[in-house]
Design a protein around this nucleic acid. Structure first.
Lengths: 154, 154
DNA sequence: AAAAATATGTTGCATTTACAACAATATTAT
DNA sequence: ATAATATTGTTGTAAATGCAACATATTTTT
């Protein structure tokens, strides 16, 4: 009847959501198992700041796929833990709050990476690096084209 | 330093999460634009019930990637709207609540599908059917292997 | 020059979501 | 046979998330 429509559970949409959930659970279970003191989202923010020194909050929000409010909250937590510093600066002549990773933040990041690395190597026995790489590339290509269709109001 | 580690924003994990978010926003924007009276998740449940007549709640939960509690709540809503009926039955000698789509539910599903179809056709101009198909297949394969590593306590 | 629109971050609230505890029943183990 | 464990669904609660409103400052439009 609807030859262009599949049932939802047979769509790419569904497969992407399910994969996202599986991967998130994998990540959280790993963090618990390794007794890592940061939340997964805090780690993601910290890592992203570490390779985007002097980024402002809004740009960070876009990168870590959170809204501005929650990004601010994650940063409060990281700042309270002394892993990140925030300072006022300008961007396009506007006042913004920029941030940078602290010495302790960097140490923490390295310590977590060290703990995690062997497990990442492990997963390559489950799915080959080439397979992951190919999937990453084509998924990104498709995502970027779909992204043009929406307005990402962050 | 960590040759097996990328920054999070360069990982498959990140790409999957971002794609999931983009697709979810696309879906919700479509539902709003077309003035569809159901929530996206309610539609997903209704569609899934329609091709799994007599499914029990827990199995539905697994399919629509929600926990049992929220699946129950979605079903309450669908039942209140007269789109789904629930009845007690047995499965492996245990009492379970099974469900089926009603006449009105089926009409609603067809009406939504009719509204949505032309937009689905539209997206095939953005990304070809073959590309979607290939991505779907390899994503599913990878997801299934990762899924074996977690315990999906639903 | 005044008004409107835009960019940025924060606060508060409402919705969503996950998770644990519970109740009822059935299966399995001792 | 009794106890322990497992399955299923509901309820309650805490956490996460998103969204709208606000404050401030700057740019653009009229």
């Amino acid at each position: 009847m609807f030859k262009n429509l599949r049932h939802y559970t047979d769509t790419l949409n569904y497969e992407v959501e399910k994969t996202a959930r599986v991967m998130r659970i994998l990540g959280m279970q790993l963090f618990e198992k390794l007794n890592i003191e940061l939340l997964l989202d805090e780690y993601v923010a910290l890592d992203t700041i570490s390779c985007n020194e002097g980024i402002c909050q809004r740009d960070l929000a876009k990168l870590i796929i959170k809204d501005r409010a929650n990004t601010g909250r994650i940063l409060n937590s990281l700042e309270n833990k002394g892993l990140v510093t925030r300072f006022v600066d300008t961007k396009n002549n506007r006042l913004v709050r920029k941030m940078a990773i602290t010495e302790n933040g960097y140490k923490k990041l390295i310590s977590i990476n060290k703990k995690v690395e062997s497990y990442i190597v492990e997963t390559k026995r489950i799915v080959s690096e080439e397979e992951i790489e190919a999937l990453y590339t084509s998924l990104k290509k498709v995502r970027e084209r779909f992204e043009e269709l929406i307005d990402f109001k962050i």
